[in-house]
Design a protein around this nucleic acid. Structure first.
Length: 151
DNA sequence: GCCAACGTTGGC
DNA sequence: GCCAACGTTGGC
């Protein structure tokens, strides 16, 4: 069982959108490291911290879980999509994604609050210069976040 | 394979 | 809108 933090811009897909839909394909990842996490390391049932980014209140907004293994992202083949990738083809898809299932909508655990938490000093997403949209979370970091959400 | 230029991310 | 950090691209 692994744990992850996945960033989403709430304008595109918020935790409320995920709650409504129940499950969503995590489309639009165009970074090889993030893709490789989904392809090589994610397993169905893995825990996901749903993080709102590029918004007035960035932070963890809910909990989700990995609901599928990785499969080709359809938006890469669609010329009308902003995620269209002319260098990809259905024969050799470049971009993959998993499906994510809603579990809980929580209070917002803000970025500022996470930075103040001693148990979270090593959290990948808090590291200087981090831009990855998908990062691993350790079991102890996961537990620390849950504890703070329940507190 | 190097590296400069450029693009993107994302908090502030 | 700014800008630091980092990824990607492409000429050589």
């Amino acid at each position: 069982m692994n744990y992850w933090l996945m960033k989403s811009e709430p304008d595109e897909a918020s935790i409320a959108d995920l709650e409504r839909a129940g499950q969503l394909p995590w489309t639009g990842v165009r970074n090889y490291q993030a893709r490789n996490f989904m392809r090589d390391a994610m397993r169905v049932g893995d825990g996901v911290l749903f993080y709102h980014s590029s918004c007035p209140e960035p932070g963890v907004a809910g909990l989700a879980e990995v609901a599928s293994t990785a499969y080709p992202d359809a938006t890469q083949f669609d010329p009308a999509s902003k995620y269209f990738d002319p260098k990809s083809s259905p024969e050799a898809p470049r971009w993959l994604h998993v499906d994510v299932r809603w579990r809980r909508t929580t209070r917002l655990l803000s970025l500022a609050e996470m930075r103040e938490a001693p148990e979270l000093v090593s959290l990948r997403v808090l590291q200087r210069g981090n831009r990855l949209s998908i990062t691993p979370v350790s079991p102890s970091e996961w537990a620390a976040v849950l504890k703070r959400l329940d507190a």
